[in-house]
Design a protein around this nucleic acid. Structure first.
Length: 262
DNA sequence: ATGGCTTGAGTGTCAAGA
C-alpha cells in the first residue's frame, strides 16, 4: 500500500496536477492540505472517475484537508474533538484497516506571535487526539503539513532559520511529542540524500536553488513502521507549470515479512 | 529594504502562507 501527503495550496488550481500524479504513482491513499474550498465544491466526481473515494473537511479561502483512497473510507472524523476551532485542519478515516490522520498544522507566522501560541496549543491538542485514536487503532499513520522542520538536517540554511518559526525549539519539542507517542518519521527510517526537502519558497528561485525545508511528514505507529519499505519525496510535481510550493511525500507499506527498515 | 511569489476574494489591493 502506497500512502502519501501533499499540500496542494488550492485544489481548484492543482486538481490537474493531483489527477496526473495519482495516475502516475497509483497511490492508494493521498492526504491533501490547503484545499481552500468548501465541501460543496469539492471535486468528488472527478476523483471518483479517477478511481478514488474521498472525504473532505473544508472551508472557503483557507485551510481544508482531504483523504483520497482507492479503498473504502470508514469512521470519518473531522477536526480535533476536544479543541474548539473554526479552522478546518484535521480529518481522519480508516482505510484497509489503518487509521489515516490527515493534518494541516498551523504555520505560526512568527515566534511569540498570537498565531505561534495558537500553533503550540493546537499541536498539544492534536497529540492528545492522536494518542486516543492510536489506542483505538494501533495501526495509525499521521500524515500532513506539519509546518515543523524536525532538525537542522531538514533546513537548507540552519543558521538563518535558527529559532525562527518552523524551526524553533518549542515546535521541535511538539514534533518529538508525536515520536514519544510511538510514531516514527518514515523518511528517517532509511538512508536519504542530504538536502532533501518538501517545501521551497516561490520567491528568489527557491526551488532551483534548493532553498527548502522538510516540513511535510509521514509518521507511522510501530506496526506500520515495521511494514514500511521506503519513504521518498517526489520533486517532479514541483517542476511543473503553476506548482504547489510543496512536494508530495510517499511511504510504501508492504507485508511485514518483506519490509526492511534501516 | 520586514520585501521577494502565489492564492483567494473580488475589481483595488490586502491577508496569509512558510
Amino acid at each position: 500500500m502506497k500512502i502519501a501527503t501533499w499540500n496542494v495550496n488550492s485544489l481548484k488550481v492543482r486538481l490537474p496536477h493531483v489527477l496526473d500524479w495519482l495516475a502516475a504513482t497509483q497511490a492508494d491513499v493521498l492526504c491533501l492540505q490547503e484545499t481552500k474550498m468548501e465541501d460543496k465544491v469539492f471535486p468528488y466526481a472527478e476523483l471518483e472517475a479517477a478511481g478514488y473515494h474521498a472525504a473532505h473537511n473544508g472551508q472557503k479561502t483557507y485551510n481544508g484537508v482531504a483523504i483520497l483512497a482507492r479503498g473504502t473510507l470508514t469512521d470519518v472524523r473531522c477536526d480535533i474533538p476536544a479543541f474548539a476551532d473554526e479552522q478546518k485542519r484535521v480529518i481522519a478515516a480508516t482505510v484497509n484497516g489503518a487509521r489515516i490522520v490527515c493534518a494541516y498544522m498551523p504555520n505560526g507566522q512568527a515566534v511569540g506571535s498570537d498565531k505561534y501560541e495558537y500553533k503550540l496549543r493546537w499541536l498539544a491538542a492534536l497529540a492528545e487526539f492522536v494518542r486516543d485514536e492510536m489506542a483505538r487503532c494501533p495501526q495509525l499513520a499521521l500524515l500532513g503539513d506539519y509546518n515543523i522542520a524536525p532538525t537542522d538536517r531538514d533546513v537548507h540554511d540552519p543558521a538563518a532559520w535558527k529559532d525562527q518559526v518552523l524551526c524553533s525549539e518549542p515546535e521541535r519539542a511538539a514534533f518529538r511529542r508525536f515520536v514519544d507517542l510511538g510514531l516514527a518519521d518514515a523518511f528517517r527510517l532509511f538512508d536519504q540524500p542530504d538536502k532533501t526537502y518538501s517545501w521551497w519558497d516561490y520567491r528568489q528561485m527557491g526551488f532551483r536553488r534548493n532553498h527548502g525545508l522538510r516540513i511535510d511528514h509521514i509518521l507511522l505507529s510501530a506496526p506500520l513502521a515495521a511494514e514500511c519499505s521506503a519513504c521518498t519525496i517526489d520533486k517532479a510535481p514541483r517542476k511543473l507549470e503553476r506548482p504547489s510550493d510543496h512536494a508530495p511525500v510517499v511511504a510504501e507499506l508492504v507485508a511485514a515479512a518483506e519490509a526492511k527498515p534501516a
